[in-house]
């Protein structure tokens, strides 16, 4: 942990009363930001996925995660619904296909890399960053483990390492940020045999998804999940069955989660400025009243004595 001079000054200025207002106003101003234009994203096409778990395996390898207890070619994992854990950035779950019972549907679950991530707006220490490239990153060197990001994430993505005594941390997909920076594509997308997990510019992927749906309306339902959900996510999905059948939350607001608290945050400067004035004057008034009553009483008792 290094605390440089600038940061120190910032801290000091935050400590002084007037500057306390600053951060909140800047947080509010950020509301108009619609994301970096060239950011990357991913598109998962559930009609292409065959549940081979190559993505899970590749993810495990490129991110140097611990070997799982059950090998990657074991289908018994599909008997329960899994979620990303402290040891797995991504998992594939199996869902029954109501339209075609012989062909189960597989859903890959991982961080959705939201346009305006709820985890990032939850974090009191700014341990999360939405990078211009698209991935949402987490810095464990800043985290004190409050796990509010996990509360806030509408997709139940961040996992926590509850078994670690001294270095517990949040674990989640990083969209292979380092590989992207090296010009490679994320491990899961590279490993996917059918490119059901596709990597590209988010804007291109949106176009691709729309084209696929338009070209084959029999195959897809007319919805790109992630285009607008929770303010839009970096990871997009298209499917042949309604998303609620695949365990997706379909009641998410279309605005980013942080919008829900902006109203509250905007009241903060008001309280900081109005309250001292209001309660200060009430105090002054009540002091005056007190003094006045005391004087009056003294006066009256004097008058009573004098009998004017």
């Amino acid at each position: 942990m290094s605390l440089d001079r600038r940061q120190f000054l910032k801290t000091v200025s935050v400590l002084t009363g007037s500057a306390v207002l600053g951060p909140y106003t800047s947080a509010l101003a950020s509301g108009e930001f619609h994301g970096w234009p060239d950011r990357y994203g991913m598109l998962t096409d559930f009609t292409e996925c065959v549940g081979c778990r190559s993505c899970e395996k590749a993810c495990n390898e490129v991110n140097h995660l611990p070997q799982p207890e059950v090998p990657f070619d074991d289908k018994s994992v599909f008997d329960t619904q899994r979620r990303p854990t402290a040891h797995a950035y991504t998992v594939v779950n199996r869902y029954e296909n109501t339209g075609d019972p012989g062909k189960p549907i597989y859903r890959k679950v991982q961080c959705n890399h939201c346009n305006e991530p709820a985890c990032a707006s939850a974090c009191p220490i700014h341990a999360y960053t939405k990078t211009p490239e698209g991935p949402v990153l987490y810095n464990e060197n800043l985290c004190f483990g409050c796990r509010y990001c996990m509360i806030a994430c509408p997709f139940y993505v961040p996992a926590y390492d509850y078994a670690s005594a001294f270095e517990p941390r949040i674990v989640k997909c990083v969209m292979c940020y380092d590989r992207i920076r090296e010009g490679k594509i994320p491990g899961c997308a590279e490993a996917c045999p059918t490119q059901s997990v596709t990597f590209g510019k988010r804007s291109d992927l949106l176009k691709l998804a729309a084209e696929k749906i338009a070209k084959d309306p029999e195959r897809y339902i007319d919805h790109i999940y992630g285009e607008r959900e929770a303010g839009g996510t970096g990871w997009l999905y298209i499917s042949g069955v309604p998303f609620e059948q695949l365990g997706f939350s379909t009641d998410l607001p279309e605005k980013p989660m942080v919008e829900e608290v902006k109203g509250f945050l905007s009241s903060v400067p008001v309280v900081f400025t109005v309250w001292p004035a209001l309660f200060g004057s009430i105090y002054a008034a009540s002091r005056h009243h007190e003094a006045y009553t005391r004087e009056e009483m003294q006066h009256q008792s004097k008058e009573g004595g004098k009998e004017k």
Binding site: E48, V50, D73, D74, K103, P193, F199, L205, K212
Partner: peptide, 29 residues
């Protein structure tokens, strides 16, 4: 992103028939 790489080109071609034949998409093995 819409253009399949070699691996996807192969697999998508194979799976047109093999998914329906029941030997793909049921067991990673």
């Amino acid at each position: 992103p819409g253009f399949p790489g070699l691996k996807a080109a192969y697999h998508r071609t194979c799976f047109q028939c093999h998914r329906d034949m029941g030997d793909v998409g049921l067991d990673p093995l």
